[in-house]
Each structure stands twice: as C-alpha cells, then as structure tokens.
Simulated scan of single mutants.
Amino acid sequence: MAGWHLVLVQDGELELEQAGRTARIEAGGFVLLDSGRPFRIRLAGASNTVLATRLAGRPQPHDGLVARELGRRPGVAQLVAGFLVGLAADTAPYGPGDELRLGTVVSDLVVLLLDEGLGDSALLPRIQAYIVQRLGEEGLTPDRVAAAHHISTRYLHRLFQRQGLTVASWIKGQRLERCRRDLADPGLRHLPVHVVAARWGFAQAADFSRAFRAAYGTTPTRFRAGVPGMWGRHLPRNCARSANDVRVPAQQTHGHDEARRIVPVTAH
C-alpha cells in the first residue's frame, strides 16, 4: 500500500533515490520514503538490517525531507531508534487498545524526529553565525563547531555538503574576507600584515600570504598598497560563499541490492 515510511538502518548501509535526490544512510540513520512515488532502494552493506515504519496520513510539511538523511543529532534520534527496535523485537500479544496507544507513541516520536529535520534549514545559518563570531580563534575546528551545536562532526559536514561547501573552506574563506577588509581599511594601516592575519585566525604568516594570493590574485602587501584592479576583487559583504568554497562531488557507491532483513512496524 502506498504511503509514507520512516526507514531506520540498524546495520549495513542503504541508498535511496527519490524526488531527484540520493540519500546514503549508514547504520543508525533514518530516511523518509514516499512509496506513492517512484523510488529505488539499494542495500550496500555486506549485511543489512532495516526497520520500516509506515506512517498514518500524509505529512505534507515534511515533503521536502524525502530522500534526505535524518536523525544524526543525538537525543531524539536515539530515542526513536531505541523504541522502534524494541517494538519490533517484542513478540508479546497486545489488545486493540494497547496497539492504538503504541501507535500514537510511535507517531508522536516520528513527527518529533521529522520536525527536527525541518530545523536544518535554520541550523546552518546558526552554525555559520557561530563560526563568524569566533574566526579569530585558532582552535575553531569542525569537531568544536559540531560539539557546540550538539551534532556529530559527520552531520556538520553533511549540512555544508548540501550547499556544495566544505566546513574548512568556508571558515578559511570568511577569514580571508575579513583580512581583506582590514587591509583595505585606511584606519588599520598601522597594523602589520601578520597582525591582521593573526587576529582572524591565521597563525602562520606564510600560510596566510599563500591563501590570500590564491583568493585575490595578489599578495596582502601589494593589495594594501592599492595595486590597480585589486580593490574591487572581492565578494559582497553578506555573501554566504567565498572564493575559497569548494564544491563537493557526489559520492559514488558500491554494493549489492540484496536485502537481508526488513521488519515492518506500523504507526497508526
């Protein structure tokens, strides 16, 4: 029967193609599937265990989450996964009233998980704002950024990849743009170039010089001196991307299509 399904990958790896997107889900991850539309599933692990939960109704607000990885934040995802795994393993008989209550619990947990997924559109700007406020700190690593937002480092990288970016290149680009602004500011000409670089997180002057030249086509010193044609070579002030953003190519997958075990769990 056509409908919405929340799929939990317990073991192995699953690849879902639907709605023009491809989601590759590893163990512990969730993905939303609309079986009323064309889709393709491939189980890519050597051994795969998958739980599929059919959802009642049609959660229209969550349509944009089809074929997108869900549940990489701790807390809600672990709660939903633990409940579904325990329910699938429970062979005790339940009366109609118990089944209805259990179905309500499952539905509420799933909606909570999906609502968390919708929050990703607001999460990335918050993460970027957090980074911008700390650009001058040397220890601004993906691990630190992820921990500050209670997500895994892998999930952090995935958020940036969805925009065709990498975390490191975005941080580097934002730092370079602040350095460029300071070097172009007449009021800061008393600051040596290496001091400007250090205040925005570049510990090594040589590394900063190479990165600046790659981004703007000249050295920091020549830029500050006002080499013709250099002043306008920068991005808009509020641009989310930078000249140093790196597009991430789509990952290639390998494996086979054999399903080892699929356990259906129905949510009413």
Score class of each variant (00 low, 15 high):
8 L>M: 05
6 L>Y: 02
96 P>K: 10
86 G>T: 06
30 F>S: 06
6 L>N: 02
246 V>C: 11
20 G>D: 11
56 A>P: 04
27 A>C: 10
63 D>N: 01
82 G>H: 10
210 R>G: 00
141 T>V: 07
183 L>K: 01
261 R>P: 00
22 T>W: 01
136 G>Q: 03
80 V>F: 05
60 Q>H: 10
240 A>R: 14
233 R>S: 03
139 G>T: 11
160 F>I: 03
86 G>Q: 14
93 P>Q: 09
212 F>H: 09
33 L>N: 03
29 G>N: 09
131 I>D: 03
170 W>N: 07
85 V>I: 14
147 A>Q: 14
247 R>W: 12
108 D>Y: 05
27 A>G: 12
195 V>D: 11
53 T>S: 13
171 I>R: 13
49 T>E: 12
125 P>T: 07
185 D>P: 06
141 T>G: 08
15 E>W: 01
73 R>G: 12
49 T>H: 08
42 R>D: 04
21 R>L: 13
167 V>K: 07
220 P>R: 08
53 T>V: 15
62 H>Y: 15
247 R>F: 10
180 R>D: 11
179 C>W: 03
84 L>M: 10
95 G>V: 00
253 T>S: 13
87 L>F: 12
257 D>Y: 02
185 D>R: 07
68 R>S: 11
225 A>V: 03
43 L>Y: 14
190 H>V: 13
244 N>I: 03
227 V>Y: 01
12 G>I: 11
221 T>C: 00
229 G>Y: 06
231 W>T: 13
135 L>Q: 05
178 R>A: 15
121 S>Q: 13
23 A>L: 11
148 A>N: 09
199 R>D: 07
171 I>C: 13
174 Q>C: 06
70 L>M: 02
153 T>N: 02
69 E>V: 13
53 T>W: 00
127 I>H: 01
215 A>D: 06
93 P>A: 03
210 R>A: 14
181 R>Q: 14
232 G>A: 13
85 V>Y: 02
148 A>Y: 07
185 D>E: 14
106 V>T: 14
132 V>L: 04
124 L>D: 01
208 F>N: 03
206 A>H: 10
103 G>P: 10
233 R>C: 08
193 V>L: 11
162 R>M: 02
55 L>A: 05
84 L>C: 04
61 P>V: 09
116 E>V: 01
250 A>M: 05
241 R>P: 00
170 W>M: 06
247 R>H: 13
247 R>P: 03
220 P>M: 01
135 L>Y: 05
243 A>Q: 09
11 D>T: 14
160 F>A: 05
3 G>K: 11
165 L>M: 15
112 L>M: 01
107 S>Q: 12
212 F>N: 08
30 F>T: 02
52 A>V: 12
110 V>C: 14
128 Q>C: 12
256 H>C: 06
43 L>R: 13
70 L>C: 10
7 V>D: 04
20 G>L: 06
222 R>E: 12
113 L>C: 08
227 V>P: 02
217 G>V: 02
